[in-house]
């Protein structure tokens, strides 16, 4: 982060919820994450943007260890990420994840998709889990679809179910890996609206997205990544009106004028 001084907009007093310390990762010869340092405080909404291949999805996925890292440390809620096993499974339950391709369980109904994690992982009694699931489905606006299978829903509906499924675990932080990139344009807003609501409710969120409107309106902080580095980070207003780095200026000029 030599190119830009870091202006941390978060209050120094609050203990950070997610901390990445000098994280590095390689895919063979490709250095996808280079010396990543990042602190995310409780209730903060961090939006990751940048050109494709810049490492933003990878970064997002390292936080619940769907991607392993080569060096550095990641802690969530003060605890370092454990190695593969029961301990890691427990931690993953605290970190919600929403994928680009929804990844709803195709052989389960919508309701069952939201119930299964609560029952099997959190050991919540089934009636209570179903009640929670129906509330959440109602909240994301797909309550009427509870008994259908995922394939019977539109992309936007599926993604909202996926958000409900993650929320059912009562996570401390939610990761969104390009949640609207696989959606038809008319469905993007219904998903972003749910995410905006979530942000307004104080959920800690890490969002990889190409939706600059969402970044502007919902983010506390925008991180701009390129070539595996966090090149620039700032408040959305400052970033979008006056980007400091050439990479960011170049990127914004390409996406904001069409």
């Amino acid at each position: 982060m030599t190119e830009s001084p870091v202006e941390d907009s978060t209050p120094a007093a609050a203990a950070p919820l997610v901390v990445l310390d000098n994280v590095n990762k390689h895919y063979g010869a490709l250095h996808v994450l280079q010396d990543i340092d990042l602190r995310i405080t409780q209730g903060e909404v961090v939006v990751l943007i940048g050109p494709s291949g810049s490492g933003k999805s990878t970064l997002c996925r390292t936080i619940n260890r769907l991607e392993t890292i080569d060096s550095g440390t990641i802690t969530v809620d003060g605890r370092p990420l454990p190695a593969e096993g029961k301990e890691l499974a427990r931690l993953r339950a605290e970190v919600g994840m929403v994928f680009q391709s929804f990844n709803l369980f195709a052989h389960k109904t919508v309701l069952e998709n939201v119930v299964i994690g609560q029952v099997k992982v959190r050991k919540v009694p089934r009636p209570q889990a179903e009640r929670t699931a129906r509330e959440l489905l109602e909240r994301v606006g797909v309550g009427a679809q509870a008994d259908k299978y995922p394939a019977q829903l539109s992309g936007g509906q599926q993604q909202r179910v996926a958000i409900a499924r993650a929320l059912a675990m009562k996570p401390k932080v939610m990761l969104f890996d390009e949640p609207t990139s696989a959606l038809d344009p008319e469905m993007v807003n219904e998903v972003l609206e749910v995410m905006r609501q979530l942000a307004a409710d104080g959920m800690t969120m890490v969002v990889v997205t190409h939706e600059m409107g969402f970044a502007r309106s919902a983010a506390n902080r925008v991180l701009f990544m390129a070539d595996g580095r966090i090149v620039e980070q700032n408040t959305p207003d400052a970033f979008f009106t006056a980007p400091r780095s050439d990479r960011a200026k170049d990127f914004l000029s390409k996406i904001l004028h069409h």
Binding site: L66, R92, M97, G117, K120, A166, M169
Partner: peptide, 18 residues
């Protein structure tokens, strides 16, 4: 079975066996 199915399961905190 698409890899995403297993990733979604793991991200919910399911163990390998689950």
């Amino acid at each position: 079975v698409p890899l995403g199915q297993a990733e979604a399961a793991r991200s919910l905190g399911m163990t390998f066996g689950q």
